[in-house]
Design a protein around this nucleic acid. Structure first.
Lengths: 339, 339
DNA sequence: GTGAAAGCGCTAACAT
DNA sequence: ATGTTAGCGCTTTCAC
């Protein structure tokens, strides 16, 4: 595992490094004989060009960066699998960054990505990010950038998301159809577009079914089961009787689930619950958790395709694409009153 | 977000690049006045040294690589969080690689890490890896290397693991104490040391309690809930009645859990189940799943500390450390017959 | 058809 | 105290 360079090959063959370089790149101006000798020796020595040297030279790395809030979230882990699926096939390596929902970490990550000459960036923004100038700067510098899931509207680039409005609408409608009339919505951080869109979907469904909206039943939680547990606990102890909860994320749904069980209420008879963004293990819960499922793998694939196209043919991307994927309702026992 | 180089600073100040370089590194041989002007301008221009150029020069990158089978596995996601915790504090960036339990991917990952001049590697080996020469080559080349969880015995370097034998022993003992007498062990791939050690722990517990070991109750599953589901289903349909299952991993336990529920058997009355490696959501299962919990975060921290020490002071590492962490039994309803 | 030289951004001998 | 030069590994003019 010693580092072999073109110098080693040149010395061995008594030719110059430029000849070696050209032979390796199969240049037309190199004699067939020389070419053959170089290629054979390179093969034999297991030569691979030094990516760092190439990077310094060309300002690219064949790496694409991905920033997600947290890889432990199964949704993001699956999106990343989708990204890797297409990136790997195209010869790119995916470098994963976690923001842990911190603005400061996100800014550091962006700098790292820029400085290390990553070829492009896929990002789902941190919950604590209110200022998008780090992304704006990148984008203005011509750096290929694609948002997914937690997208940033203010920056004109490709985006991949799901129809959050429709997903949340369907979830609320489903609870209504199960007979719920006092439905709470535990939302995510309101600065995130996905949270606001999901909330709008909930409101729209209630309005369409002529159910009065009670603002006291609309809460904003962090994407954190502990916080959601606290909020739900307080909600259940309050004096408004509720019979259904729409949770705006899986982490939030987990907190709700725990709070309902803890309160000794039965699901779905006393309170029906539905989450957003499927969990691979939700089916094993007690009771199994209904959710609005998102095509996470496909989202990753789509975002990666858009980014790679942006990297390879920037000129083909005058028209910005906003790919909105469909969600699907997965009804399990936590919300199914008559199954 | 334009790239600022020392050249820009040098030109602006009418001095040479080496002076700038020295001033930036606070060299004693630079005049206080010059130093001040350089520092100020650098600050103002938001100069940061180009890491790629530095990398080419020094053969290091301030990145450490981590190879795990799969980031979607909560255990590995938590280990990575622990690694990042110490690496970040020491100024290292953690680059995550997934082997997806494929030997070929692992080899590619190792090459990438070596070629990109990562400063060191933390690895938990792929289930399909039988040949360790890619690690051996790295290690022989003096590349800092630390194994965690799925360690490789044959290579003489630092290792961090848990006491798999004891954990599995305690799990089996617990089932015995709950009255189980016909206990199956669904193991992981047998080429992995952790699988074999856990199996040994199981055997030892049964022997200590004078329970005859039935080899037909010992199965090897992939780390995959689907596979485990299939095996458990077949086991339950067989003609040997069992009343307890020790699963050798959380993915395996999930398959067992599903199979038992599917068969309409009650947990823990008909069959008591205990897994290995805690899942954050195991407490919400129906019934909640008992497990042998591993200190994943601490494992990551320990491995990262060992690696960084190896990177910074190779000479201090004549004595190899094998850090074996303790597991703890988390008893939940899936195995608690009289609570 | 092949070699010499410059340069990507930076640092460290080697001058002065 | 500061400038000049070489070199990390590679590609690409520019020569011949």
């Amino acid at each position: 595992m010693k580092k072999i360079t073109i110098k080693d090959i040149a010395r061995e063959l008594n030719i110059s490094t430029s000849t070696v370089s050209r032979a390796l790149r199969d240049s037309y101006e190199i004699g067939a004989e020389t070419k053959k000798r170089v290629l054979e020796l390179a093969q034999q020595l297991d030569y691979t060009p030094d990516p760092v040297a190439l990077s310094l030279l060309n300002s690219h790395s064949n790496d694409i960066g991905v920033i997600v809030p947290d890889i432990a979230n199964p949704f993001f882990a699956t999106v990343i699998a989708g990204i890797e699926d297409v990136a790997f096939a195209q010869g790119y390596h995916v470098v994963i960054y976690q923001s842990h929902d911190s603005y400061e970490r996100e800014v550091l990550n962006v700098k790292h990505i820029f400085n290390r000459r990553k070829d492009g960036l896929l990002v789902s923004v941190a919950a604590n990010t209110h200022d998008y100038s780090h992304f704006k700067d990148l984008h203005d510098a011509g750096f290929p950038l694609v948002f997914f899931d937690r997208i940033c509207e203010e920056i004109d680039t490709h985006k991949v998301s799901v129809d959050d409005f429709e997903g949340a609408y369907n979830a609320a409608e489903h609870l209504i159809q199960q007979g719920c009339r006092s439905i709470a919505h535990i939302s995510g951080p309101q600065n995130l577009l996905i949270s606001r869109r999901r909330l709008h979907g909930y409101r729209a469904a209630l309005m369409d079914y002529k159910i009065p909206i009670n603002e006291d039943l609309i809460l904003a939680s962090d994407f954190d089961a502990e916080h959601s547990l606290l909020l739900t606990r307080r909600l259940l102890q309050g004096n408004i009787k509720i019979d259904g909860i729409c949770a705006s994320a899986n982490s939030i749904a987990i907190g709700c689930h725990a709070a309902i069980v803890e309160a000794g209420l039965s699901m779905p008879q006393d309170i029906a619950l539905i989450g957003f963004s499927d969990l691979p293990l939700a089916g094993l819960f007690n009771p199994p958790l209904s959710t609005v499922s998102q095509p996470a793998f496909e989202m990753g694939r789509s975002a990666a395709k858009l980014l790679i196209n942006l990297i390879k043919k920037p000129e083909d991307n005058k028209m910005l694409i906003s790919n909105v994927l469909k969600t699907s309702l997965i009804v399990r026992k936590s919300s199914l009153r008559n199954g």
